[in-house]
Amino acid sequence: MDILSTLDTGHGIWNPVVWLLAAGIAAVIAYLIWAYGESGYKRGTEQTKPFLSGNAEPEKGDVHVRGSHLYWGFTEALKGYFDRIVPLHTGVLNDYTLWFLGTTALILVMVGLI
């Protein structure tokens, strides 16, 4: 079998080589557009410094967006869900064991009813 042949997924096909060719063509087009752009960019000059409305540039560590700041809106919107699901993960072994035994009992009831 050809190593780069097309994957048949039953109701569709997938060939990464075709995808890569398409991605390559898209990259070439993107490059051509970029090449027609403004060429006055000079690395390491005044123009590459951030403009903060005249304010002094903060320390490097202060401008990095830390992990907890990302997706605040998402988690806030789903607060009702997270308020219920996160506390279930108590870290207490007794709770873990109860979940294990409880789930086993539930599956036992379901299989027993079959």
Partner: peptide, 18 residues
């Protein structure tokens, strides 16, 4: 989305002094 968060948090941004 989750891995974008990890990537941003660990690798992106200016070189931190620490």
């Amino acid at each position: 989305a989750s891995f974008v968060k990890v990537f941003q948090s660990i690798f992106m941004g200016p070189r931190l002094p620490e």
